[in-house]
Design a protein around this nucleic acid. Structure first.
Lengths: 380, 380
DNA sequence: ACGGCTTCGTGAATCGTTTCATCGCCGGAA
DNA sequence: TTCCGGCGATGAAACGATTCACGAAGCCGT
């Protein structure tokens, strides 16, 4: 680790630190705690009331039920609000209302474009309801996950969308006692979890990919996988096997390379192993686009043509799948829709009609996006 | 837009909707507002106090200044806290304390791995201070940016890290009146903004890239740029020109292709235009890795060898730069450090020692990461 | 025995908002 | 004139925590 090369430009400027904002000229303010310190006092509903010559209740009404306050008063109050730059305090509202206007989204890996899409979907749904989203990253660490969950509990978040780190759901089970609703995203818990979940049908996804390769005339496939204890990897494998059976081929027609991780480096390793296999495979299905990109890199470096000598299919359809040197055929996960659906479920569960809510497990269907990397007769 | 194919599994289960949690057997609770409704009442500090037979003040002390309460009492209270699963309400604390424990981070594009790294850096710094991070995405839209900024004002967040959408800083100027500190990330505002900022020296970055290509023996470069009204694109261009001058070459040795956007599709277009240029260029520097990946794709499709016939350098060193078929030489932005530095500045500005805070403009230095795409004699 | 000190705990005030019972006022009906 | 209804506005009571000025013991020394 090199020391960071940092260029500092101090710029003292006008020394704007934080200034006291007094009660204003002519305002006979009898508070004992004057704003003597360095901290500026926020303008509150009381300031507006005083300045407009009405009671705080009236100001509150102007904001929340403008129709029930006289036209004349309303405009006057609104003018003062604008003039003073009053912004209501969400904390105080929350305290009084008993429910917050924030939902939390805890993902496994913020750098993964897939989760970025999930987040966008959730964000959209939330914003339509006027809710804020707090996006956090557990980075696959159970400890961080636990930390964040207790942060959410302290915040009395309206609800949580979470991709649990461990399928056992230990942290979530602990979290349950807070009575904060949550929706599990992109996973279905093993245990008898009673909550909602939204996930994608990985078995179908696996068979979409395999079926496509078989349709291109290949009679034998290789599945490049991550750890098989992940349900994702297992299910996609299952789907591929199913596709073989459909085509009347034995399960032995599917060879498997299992790596430790689901990233590009693991893909490179797998690519090297592919090249060493005899007979050399002609069709490869990867559990993940990152793996596929790694494989592609290894094949390219070895001068093996894709799809000419080896056809390649990935999974996830991340943005960079289309950006690869040979655009990558991939199974697209409806990430945006998943986030959206999860947030909608949560909103329903925590909304007015919560009484009518029944927990659901929504399973979305993936779709195959065919690009150059898998088709027998390369375009152009 | 096709209708989403959704498979619904309703699973009525045990109809766990939300249950009332009564005051518990033996607890003579005389509140008027019983939990008659469907909504479960959160256990508060008062419940703990009653159950433990102490006053609320004492419970508060157990939590916040455990050393000043007698051993015996403390353990008793702690036991009750654990038993009841009490979690303090951050809203109430915030209301009383006047300052929240959340900082906001507003980025241009969550799907961009660069910002994901910035976010990680900020998150790390925040968590070390026990602060929560609220990550939001303005998606380059000034309207969304404004929405989020007012959300932050309502939340009375401790401070904001923001990558402004427009350099004019209109929204930020409006935001200033709330007296919420902010740090500008990855941009320096044109106007006389008094706040802190953290950015990367793009001029240096541009000249690093160009110098490297010149060192490989090229005497003429093409700069594939996005819109030149973006300071990023301009500065990198400036840096490249400086490198040419250093090498004693005229500015005409740098041709420029300017696209509308900074994405892969724009890169593909640029790649096509590159192939039509005469004389055909031998060295290309892209304002962005996405552009470079697009160029790479176009060149690959046309059968042009990289770096054999054309050397290519990108900018940002996103994760996928290394994952490209020909690993991409790129100028790495210290994204993580940038997020970290920005959050540190904000924490300093809003912390105990805020009085000693002076606004700073930190400029971090980029570094060149050399990979296969630019070196004259390809590895392997 | 009594003042003074330390050690622990108490209870009320406070933060900024929403909500709700209440009140003043005006016009119309009896 | 009196009474009533309705419209608008009011003020106080929550919400859940923190803080702080006090008070109640217990202990010591003189």
């Amino acid at each position: 680790m090199v020391a960071p090369r940092v260029v500092l430009s101090p710029r003292p400027r006008s020394g704007c630190v934080a200034w006291a904002r007094g009660p204003g000229p002519g305002a006979a303010d009898s508070r004992k705690r004057e704003t003597v310190g360095l901290v500026a006092r926020m303008v509150g509903i009381k300031d507006v009331a005083r300045q407009a010559g009405v009671s705080v209740g009236t100001v509150s009404n102007v904001i929340n039920r403008p129709e029930m306050v006289a036209e004349e008063t309303r405009t006057r109050v609104q003018a003062v609000i604008a003039q003073l730059g009053y912004v209501r305090s969400e904390s105080a509202r929350h305290l009084r209302a008993g429910r917050s206007r924030i939902i939390a989204l805890l993902v496994l890996d913020m750098a993964n474009p897939f989760f970025a899409d999930v987040a966008s979907g959730a964000e959209r749904a939330a914003r339509e309801e006027g809710l804020g989203v707090m996006l956090c990253n557990s980075a696959q660490s159970p400890a961080e996950e636990a930390d964040y969950l207790s942060l959410f509990a302290e915040q009395r978040v309206r609800g949580v969308l979470v991709t649990p780190v461990d399928t056992s759901g230990r942290n979530l089970a602990d979290f349950r006692r807070h009575d904060i609703p949550y929706v599990v995203v992109d996973r279905v818990l093993d245990s008898a979890d009673e909550g909602c979940s939204v996930s994608v049908d990985d078995v179908t996804g696996g068979s979409l990919a395999a079926r496509h390769l078989l349709a291109q005339g290949h009679r034998e496939l290789v599945y490049v996988s991550g750890p098989m204890h992940l349900s994702q990897c297992r299910d996609r494998h299952t789907g591929a096997l199913a596709a073989l059976s459909e085509a009347g081929l034995p399960h032995t027609a599917l060879r498997r390379i299992e790596g430790e991780r689901l990233d590009v480096a693991a893909g490179r390793d797998a690519g090297a192993r592919l090249l060493g296999m005899t007979p050399r495979p002609t069709a490869v299905f990867c559990a993940n686009d990152l793996l596929a990109l790694g494989v592609l890199q290894a094949l390219f470096a070895a001068g093996v043509s894709v799809p000419g000598e080896i056809a390649l299919v990935g999974y996830d359809d991340i943005e960079f799948a289309a950006a690869a040197a040979v655009p990558l055929t991939s199974v697209r996960q409806p990430a945006f829709r998943m986030g959206r659906a999860a947030a909608d479920l949560l909103i329903e569960e925590t909304g007015e009609a919560a009484a009518g809510h029944r927990h659901q497990r929504i399973v979305l269907q993936p779709e195959l996006v065919v690009r150059d990397s898998s088709i027998s007769a390369p375009r152009h």
